[in-house]
Nucleic acid binder design. Structure first.
Lengths: 168, 168
DNA sequence: CTTTTGGTTCTGAATTAAAAGAACCAAACT
DNA sequence: AGTTTGGTTCTTTTAATTCAGAACCAAAAG
């Protein structure tokens, strides 16, 4: 006979405020294109009093299937949104929001957005010369994006420098 | 008996390069969350030799249904991505890419992205004080976004000023 | 070596988003 | 007035996401 030392449920207790925030946050993320389960997991990891939750705690608290939680967590880990921690002597994995990566994720996202400029340059190269006004507008957009690219790098640098100073 | 003075087709002739760019551009936009038809219309309006196209030219060139083109164009106009021009004495509407708005659309988009900060501040206010490390990381993200908000406004200003100078 | 734990992977079902098709409508033309 | 044009709107079809449920599997525990 094997002992069952586990609790009946691993559901996390949440205040109504916490639940409400999970709701709002996930609506926000879903609108930005993230799938619902991923969004709710991220939101839960942000509001929960314990910052490292197990697979089962997430599953039970959000009342979702194992498969959905599994795939969502894996893509979140892949995208550096969540880190998975293992404690020696404990088989379970613990999942934690990767707040630290917010900065560099934002940077990557912006870079991807700005990479449209390569296509715009291709377009300019192929355009007829008959439409000078339009082409000039296009050139202007291209310079704007080039400008943003340069400036954003400086803004990120400025932030990093400022952080360095504050921590010394 | 009524004369049919219209052409058989209003399809726009496109080089293979132009077609290829439409393809690449729409893939890019779709990945950023824009519906396919909208993306292809925008791309077409960017590469086409004529910059103002009619409803039917768009429909035939992209080989899409009237309803799809209609709704896509209407949302594009609503979002200030496309402008619709009417020429007096011509019943058709002409549609043109709003390159001029790229700048301010970008600004709006970024602002929406950064508006997540209000939620993060709510979260911080509700969090337990037991998790000081995590809370500090969260505060750090919040300051980062606040910082970006301020800096981006300055970057946009700088661009506008620079443009003003160049044009005078 | 058997059982339990902590998941993963593989269907299928259900929901959602996108596009097509047809009916419709107002303005202009004859 | 009747027709054609230039679309719009509503309904149906199709395609793509998302999730659940069950089977499965490796590592650890008994």
């Amino acid at each position: 006979m094997y002992l069952c030392t586990r609790n009946e449920t691993s559901m996390i207790e949440l205040s109504s405020e916490q639940l409400e925030i999970i709701q709002k946050m996930s609506v926000f993320q879903v609108r930005a294109g993230m799938p619902p389960t991923e969004s709710r997991i991220l939101a839960l990891l942000l509001v929960s009093d314990r910052t490292e939750l197990t697979f089962d705690e997430i599953r039970e608290t959000l009342n979702t299937s194992k498969s959905a939680v599994s795939t969502a967590l894996n893509t979140l880990v892949l995208r550096n949104k969540v880190e998975s921690i293992t404690i020696p002597g404990d088989r379970k994995r613990y999942f934690k929001h990767q707040l630290k990566n917010w900065n560099s994720n934002a940077k990557d996202g912006l870079h991807k957005l700005l990479s449209v400029n390569e296509l715009l340059k291709e377009i300019l190269a192929v355009r007829t010369s008959k439409t000078e006004d339009f082409n000039q507008d296009l050139r202007n957009v291209i310079s704007f994006i080039d400008f943003m690219q340069v400036e954003l790098v400086q803004v990120f640098d400025k932030w990093n420098k400022q952080q360095y100073i504050e921590n010394n």
